[in-house]
Amino acid sequence: MTADLFVVDGRASVQFAGDRALTFRVVSVCDQPAYAGWIWLTGYVLGRRGEATAKREIYVQLAGLRPAAAAPAPRRARGTGSYAARRDQGDGGAARDRSGLCARADAR
């Protein structure tokens, strides 16, 4: 297979018709015999943002597979910063100058 990212819809199998269509990243092709024109694929269902949401094995018609546009790279969750960067945790600075403790006591 030249592309490893496909749109799997009703053309590939009736079980993927309509709102059951999915974008599928193929990781392996089974060499087990199947009916002529059909194939077993193992891979990952991709969400709208390009992240893998489930690993599946699907049985589809090879002629019904369509290459999908490249999915965007999954985005990492945006963090609030490392613990060491905060004055009240991590690096011991708050324990030395007690600024984190004072701020909490003043807030009460």
Results as ranks from 00 to 15, higher is better:
79 G>Y: 09
77 A>K: 14
66 R>Q: 13
11 R>S: 12
55 K>R: 12
72 P>K: 09
39 I>A: 12
58 I>G: 08
10 G>S: 13
78 R>Y: 05
79 G>Q: 12
85 A>C: 01
28 S>F: 01
51 E>W: 06
79 G>P: 03
50 G>T: 04
38 W>T: 08
64 G>M: 06
28 S>A: 14
15 Q>W: 14
6 F>Q: 02
69 A>N: 01
8 V>M: 09
33 P>L: 14
26 V>I: 10
70 A>M: 09
31 D>A: 15
47 G>V: 06
14 V>I: 15
48 R>A: 14
65 L>T: 03
49 R>L: 15
55 K>D: 06
84 A>F: 11
52 A>R: 08
23 T>L: 02
24 F>W: 08
59 Y>A: 00
5 L>V: 12
58 I>L: 11
86 R>M: 11
17 A>M: 10
41 L>R: 01
18 G>K: 06
25 R>E: 02
11 R>N: 13
9 D>C: 11
22 L>G: 01
44 Y>P: 00
43 G>V: 08
51 E>V: 07
40 W>R: 05
30 C>I: 12
44 Y>M: 09
51 E>G: 00
6 F>G: 00
66 R>G: 04
72 P>F: 02
60 V>R: 06
46 L>W: 08
61 Q>G: 09
69 A>Y: 03
8 V>H: 04
57 E>K: 09
23 T>I: 10
45 V>L: 10
9 D>E: 07
38 W>R: 09
41 L>G: 03
78 R>K: 07
45 V>Q: 13
51 E>F: 04
46 L>N: 04
9 D>G: 07
21 A>I: 00
78 R>A: 12
38 W>M: 12
86 R>H: 12
20 R>D: 11
18 G>R: 05
54 A>L: 13
27 V>M: 10
71 A>C: 03
72 P>A: 15
6 F>L: 03
22 L>P: 00
26 V>H: 00
52 A>S: 13
45 V>P: 01
86 R>Y: 07
86 R>G: 05
22 L>T: 05
72 P>R: 10
32 Q>A: 15
24 F>Q: 03
80 T>W: 14
11 R>H: 13
17 A>F: 11
21 A>Q: 10
51 E>P: 00
79 G>M: 12
29 V>I: 15
83 Y>P: 06
40 W>I: 06
14 V>N: 11
21 A>M: 07
73 A>Q: 04
20 R>G: 01
49 R>W: 10
61 Q>D: 03
61 Q>L: 10
84 A>H: 04
47 G>Q: 11
15 Q>H: 12
28 S>G: 08
79 G>N: 14
53 T>Y: 09
60 V>W: 02
64 G>N: 04
12 A>N: 06
84 A>N: 03
17 A>H: 10
33 P>E: 11
65 L>M: 14
14 V>Y: 11
66 R>A: 13
65 L>Q: 02
56 R>L: 07
55 K>W: 01
57 E>Y: 00
59 Y>V: 03
24 F>R: 00
31 D>K: 14
56 R>D: 01
54 A>N: 11
62 L>W: 13
85 A>T: 07
67 P>W: 06
84 A>E: 02
13 S>E: 09
31 D>N: 13
69 A>T: 09
37 G>D: 05
80 T>Y: 10
75 R>A: 12
80 T>Q: 10
51 E>S: 07
55 K>G: 02
9 D>T: 08
79 G>L: 15
11 R>I: 07
51 E>A: 10
40 W>K: 00
13 S>P: 02
